[in-house]
Design a protein around this nucleic acid. Structure first.
Lengths: 193, 193
DNA sequence: AAAAACCGTTGATATTTATCAACGGTTTTA
DNA sequence: TAAAACCGTTGATAAATATCAACGGTTTTT
């Protein structure tokens, strides 16, 4: 169950985990299962857990005043599900995170994570690297959103994240890209020619 | 010259700097001046420096295939100018950063920063906190971009960042929000009623 | 002091994207 | 296995935003 996580940590830090550290990681991360459609986080709650996805797929979204959903993140294996704003500021989350498929996930509280980081240098390294990548990815996404047309954004996304295209239905991809499902459908039709 | 930076660091870390640490910070950050329009970073170069702005204003932008500029960040006093992707991955930057006003800035290389972080815990804390805030701010900006109309985005921006509205001309604000200057002009006219 | 560059605005028009409604083919649920 | 929910598509139309061109008033440069 924890192998994916251990190898993820080792892949993202210069110093491999010792056996003791591995044991501590395993003891701290708690395995949970979420059935399809089950909430990992609901709007209004404080996000108490970060979750490392071992198997399955989740989505994070916001519901606007008119009741429309806006996908902000899609997660699959080896991704972290979390509302960072809520969990670090301890404020009510504006987002929902739920399971799109039946999902196995390893959860950890913020306090536990800070404790692990103080005890395991590799953990701190990993978090730093993750943050770095995340910052870069967000910057790219923002750019793409601000200065490309819907068509180009879809192209970019499809070439950079083919796994997501296969895994999630089109209307979720459309929402993630900030366009309607109808527009995406038409873009794809165009692209075939 | 360095007071702003020292107080910034102390404001963003739980443990205040010791006198020795202060001296080290002052010795490491190098003061530079940039005249209006002067480049801090040019597209194609690797971003070697991060800069803490002591006085003045800068902008970061991308030039697309058609030669149009897209503002991705605006910086004023107490902001950090940097292309994170380029400076951490050592890749050619896709961005330009230049001075919008005459600007005084304290620069540091990535290697120097890592060295400082290893010697000064408060520095590491500061960077972590900064990263955290940045991640949160980016998430918010992305959301706003994906799910709000241009009008609402401008409203949000104007209430959350009045300093920028006063400091930069409208066409830069428009570009930052991902809309044209004409559209922003019309939105503002509407809003007066 | 004249010329040039910059800035915000407005009008006319074109393009992009959203909205609304309907359909047939899945897949899931009861 | 029948009913319901879900999914992608298409058409008609509406709304949001971009583009192009021009203007007068600054401010900056020469």
């Amino acid at each position: 169950m924890h192998e994916n996580l251990l190898s993820y940590i080792n892949r993202h830090s210069p110093t491999p985990l010792t056996k003791d550290e591995e044991a501590l990681v395993i003891a701290t991360f708690q395995p949970k299962k979420f059935r399809k459609k089950q909430y990992f986080l609901q709007e209004g709650d404080v996000c108490k857990y970060a979750g490392f996805i071992v198997k399955g797929a989740m989505r994070q979204y916001r519901v606007d005043e008119k009741g429309a959903e806006h996908i902000v993140h899609l997660f699959i294996e080896n991704y972290w599900a979390n509302d960072r704003e809520s969990s670090t500021m301890l404020t009510a989350s504006k987002y929902n995170i739920d399971a799109w498929e039946d999902t196995e996930i390893l959860v950890i509280t913020r306090a536990e994570m800070l404790d692990l980081m103080s005890k395991i240098p590799a953990m701190t390294e990993m978090i730093r690297l993750m943050d770095e990548r995340n910052a870069i990815a967000n910057q790219r996404r923002l750019n793409s959103t601000l200065s490309n047309t819907a068509e180009k954004r879809y192209e970019e996304f499809a070439t950079n994240h083919p796994q997501f295209i296969q895994r999630f239905p089109q209307h979720l991809i459309a929402s993630f890209l900030g366009i309607t499902k109808e527009t995406l459908s038409r873009i794809r039709k165009q692209a075939l020619k």
